[in-house]
Design a protein around this nucleic acid. Structure first.
Lengths: 250, 250
DNA sequence: CGCTCGGTTGATGCACATCAAAGGCTGTGG
DNA sequence: CCACAGCCTTTGATGTGCATCAACCGAGCG
């Protein structure tokens, strides 16, 4: 799947939209979702599947379209979003490697994608047909348990954000960044997803300007540092106490 | 399960906290969740289960406690909430009859209830042990599909609310009320859950006073009417256009 | 009778939205 | 190779929706 021995990362020159690659069961089997399943069984569970590459901002699924496939994020990140009646973008969720996309709606008779899904930076996803989910995946209690685990943590994150509704803006931003670093245990203090201020704003339901005012202040205090959409947290304790509202930004 | 031939409804005199009743498979089998399953199979799926009654504001599950059981709401309603660091109540979700509570976390090894669960008015719930979920429920693809359907609509509602973050308060309130009437198809224009202004506020992350100002105005205009926590929508079209932000309250 | 709960109203202030303007960076097409 | 468009970021001036604080009322209840 990867050329020579180079590490394929964000810096790779973007391929054209939606370039398909052959299945690499070697890598796919390593995802926690498939732990304990034989190579042969994984092949069955992915039968008819395809690995697709997207460049930055490419559209994977479109809201309202019939949902014939679901996805497993292999590399990079995807955002789930909707356009509000007022024409603004509302980001509902960020998906990292290992996350499933649209799996929850596969059991429906005539499923419709409930969100738009866009790549954030160059990303790869494994797409599998809906019939396979219904015929193979639903029969595997272990697999279902893990999917419910993913959905559970997704719901927990949505709920955690709902709890922050009353909190001041700086708490919301701190909370979002900490949530994102927490979901990727080995990411250290670096947010594992390339994030613009606009995307933070759209995720929190506030304006870009407000996000910028808060984060510029944090950069001046050396609590965080941003380089090319990658945010690194330099002072976790401060951010934690900001998230919990124990500290005022004064 | 019910005394004589009387209909047991909200108006019933509340029983003491957590009174247990014998299983009534007759009624339980009628829930959509169990459609297509034989009485005997339903009995297996509910084995060791118990029907529990709660009076208004009684606590069913407590955040942070080990989760040994999950629930199916039979009658009445329950709210899922958390206390914020600032000591305020944040309502995350309203459960009506047919909803499952804490099913999602049953596959975990050592599950912990992720929210507080309180009864809203006199309510009944069917409680089933975690082992039954793991041993029996997970083996039933049809059951899993339906549970994923419930979770799916729950996630859709959370996401719909997240989309309303930027909207003005009157839109949020209209949207919440319409969401609640929509989930109970035969409820007509009456919100199927007894709701105080405080609960609306806690659900939306705003203050009681603000909710009251909006809703008092609506009552003056005869768009809604409230009697003893039961809200009836008199002018659905107006509320819909308010929810979509097509109309200003002026 | 005091208590709690739910609802209501008004005065004041602030956190964030809005509007405006500008500069850097990247990809793209002439 | 340059011009241009789109995206991302930044800063400042001004406005406003909702929070906050305070007080009050009526109903139900032990």
């Amino acid at each position: 799947m990867m050329a020579k021995s180079r590490t394929v990362g964000e810096e790779d020159s973007p391929l054209p939209y939606s370039k398909k690659m052959p299945l690499d069961l070697e890598k796919i089997s390593k995802f926690p979702l498939f732990q304990g399943y034989s190579r042969a069984r994984v092949e069955e569970l992915c039968s008819g599947g395809e690995v697709v590459h997207h460049s930055h901002r490419a559209l994977l699924f479109e809201f309202g379209q019939p949902a014939s496939k679901f996805g497993l994020v292999l590399q990079g990140a995807y955002k789930l979003s909707r356009i509000t009646p007022a024409g603004e973008d509302s980001i509902l969720y960020f998906c990292s490697p290992g996350d499933v996309i649209a799996a929850l709606i596969m059991p429906q008779e005539k499923p419709i994608y409930p969100v738009n899904v866009h790549a954030m930076g160059p990303s790869w996803v494994l797409l599998i047909r809906r019939e396979i989910y219904q015929q193979e995946w639903l029969k595997e209690p272990a697999l279902i348990s893990r999917i419910q685990g993913l959905l559970s943590s997704r719901m927990m994150r949505l709920q955690a954000q709902k709890m922050m509704q009353r909190a001041p803006l700086f708490s919301k931003i701190a909370s979002l960044l900490l949530q994102l670093v927490a979901q990727e245990p080995d990411s250290g203090v670096e947010v594992p997803i390339p994030l613009t201020r606009k995307e933070i704003a759209d995720s929190l339901g506030v304006t870009v300007e407000s996000v910028i005012r808060v984060m510029s202040d944090w950069e001046k205090r050396h609590w965080v540092i941003t380089s090319d959409r990658h945010i690194r947290i330099l002072n976790v304790e401060h951010l934690v106490s900001l998230a919990e509202g124990l500290e005022t930004p004064g």
